[in-house]
Amino acid sequence: MAVLVLSVVLVLVLGGCVCVVWAQRGGPRWVRGVAAVTLGMASVVRFVGRASSGSGKSGSSSSDD
């Protein structure tokens, strides 16, 4: 079941990326709409990722030598 859900999410992400590229090349109106939604969701995911990674950091120094 989890594989099916992840497969659907992967197909939606890839379809959104295709629509973004197609919209850059002047695709139809529905493609520009899907591209706008895809880019909007990407910014939401980026914001949530930054917020969650920032809250997990402690004041100690990292050991990435």
Rank of each mutant, 00 (worst) to 15 (best):
Met1Val: 07
Met1Trp: 03
Ala2Pro: 09
Ala2Met: 09
Leu4Pro: 07
Leu4Phe: 14
Val5Cys: 10
Val5Asn: 11
Leu6Tyr: 13
Leu6Phe: 14
Leu6Asp: 14
Ser7Asn: 01
Val8Cys: 01
Val9Leu: 15
Val9Glu: 06
Val11Leu: 15
Val11Ala: 15
Val13Ala: 11
Val13His: 02
Val13Met: 02
Leu14Lys: 01
Leu14Gly: 14
Gly16Trp: 15
Gly16Ile: 11
Gly16Met: 12
Gly16Lys: 12
Cys17Thr: 07
Cys17Pro: 00
Cys17Lys: 08
Val18Trp: 10
Val20Pro: 08
Val20Asp: 07
Val21Met: 09
Trp22Tyr: 14
Trp22Met: 12
Gln24Thr: 02
Gly26Arg: 02
Gly27Met: 09
Gly27Tyr: 10
Gly27Thr: 07
Pro28Arg: 03
Pro28Val: 10
Arg29Glu: 15
Arg29Ser: 15
Arg29His: 13
Trp30Pro: 13
Val31Cys: 05
Val31Ala: 08
Gly33Glu: 14
Gly33Ile: 12
Gly33Asp: 13
Val34Ile: 13
Ala35Pro: 13
Ala35Asp: 04
Ala35His: 03
Ala35Ser: 10
Ala36Gln: 03
Val37Asn: 07
Thr38Arg: 08
Thr38Leu: 07
Thr38His: 14
Leu39Asn: 06
Gly40Leu: 10
Gly40Pro: 12
Gly40Glu: 05
Gly40Val: 08
Met41Tyr: 06
Met41Lys: 08
Ala42Met: 08
Ser43Thr: 09
Ser43Lys: 04
Ser43His: 02
Val44Asp: 05
Val44Ala: 05
Val45Ala: 15
Val45Cys: 13
Arg46Ser: 12
Arg46Lys: 08
Val48Met: 15
Val48Pro: 06
Gly49Tyr: 04
Gly49Lys: 01
Gly49His: 01
Gly49Arg: 01
Arg50Thr: 08
Arg50Cys: 06
Ala51Val: 05
Ala51Gln: 07
Ser52Gln: 07
Ser52Cys: 07
Ser52Phe: 04
Ser52Asp: 04
Ser53Asp: 12
Gly54Trp: 09
Gly54Leu: 10
Gly54Ser: 15
Ser55Lys: 09
Gly56Arg: 02
Gly56Lys: 00
Ser58Val: 03
Gly59Trp: 08
Ser60Phe: 14
Ser61Trp: 12
Ser61Leu: 14
Ser62Ala: 02
Ser62Arg: 00
Ser63Met: 04
Asp65Arg: 14
Asp65Tyr: 11
Asp65Ala: 13
Asp65Met: 12
